[in-house]
Amino acid sequence: MRTAFSQSLIRLAQADPNVVLLTGDHGYALFDEFRRVCAQQYVNAGIAEQNMVGVAAGLAKAGLRPIVYGLSAFVPIRVLEQIKIDVCYEQLPVIFAGDGAGVVYSALGSSHQSTEDVAALRALPSIQILSPADAYELKACMTLAYETAGPVYLRMGKADLGDVHDRPLTLRAGEVLNLRAGQGPLAFLATGSMVKTALKVADDFPGAAVWSVPSIKPLSEAAVASVARAHQVLVVVEEHSVLGGLGAAVAEIVSTHAPTYVCRIGIQDRFSEFCGSYSYLMQEHRLTADDVQAQVEAFLGRLTPVSS
């Protein structure tokens, strides 16, 4: 997915000389090719993220198309106020690419992990939040982000999990993508790194539908309500806090439009306690396929028996 990201950046920059890539001294090796072919459109702003976002706002105000790259722990979290005031308030077309979202930086601890970025940004007016699951979705998200007139946050999580789609796709803002049809009681809605896990877990629930949600904000109320009406329980899976993320967005929609049980699976309201590999931390947070399955079964077990 990182290769797709790099390629997409180059494609956008070569097509539009107004595209400027800013990085807060991150992206070692990732931008080698970009720097080689688009040297004039590359700015390393140093380890100075607040300034970088303000600079991006100024560039955008003057008609350029800045793409700000950083670790998602810093972009958007460290610079949330810059995004709010300098960018969102003026609805400037700045793309924020937050890399390593979730617990990807498993060994670096909580300073480099971001499981609150979606929640923080969802409450900011005018910004869109995109969360691609694979290289195909990433390319579609990049295109959508570039074509969007306002700010966009591109949340990039664990990048080497493999594809969930088998062909290029286009994406509209708010759209949900069906990966597996099903008429059973469960529907899985997952985003980013957890889509592949959701597909695997769904194997154990006959008739379960699986949807990928690359556009967390906006999120089509009609589409989510339609899924809710077709099933009895929605299982939302994300590598993000269960507070304020995709699960919350889905629960907000169905509570208004199509009351349905929503099982929110994600990072519980806590920081990572331990250091370790990515897979280790996913175990700690009970986000492996086995753990997700167990959490779904526990949730179903607590429900008033679902009418058949």
């Binding site: 400027v20 607040q50 303000g54 600079v55 706002a57 100024g58 560039l59 955008a60 300098d86």
Partner: peptide, 22 residues
């Protein structure tokens, strides 16, 4: 938009950078 301090200069620097680039 300033008053939350430490914002305006960076935006101004971006405007100056854009003027240079353009």
């Amino acid at each position: 938009t300033s008053g939350s301090l430490g914002h305006g200069l960076s935006v101004g620097v971006g405007l100056a950078l854009a003027a240079k680039r353009q």
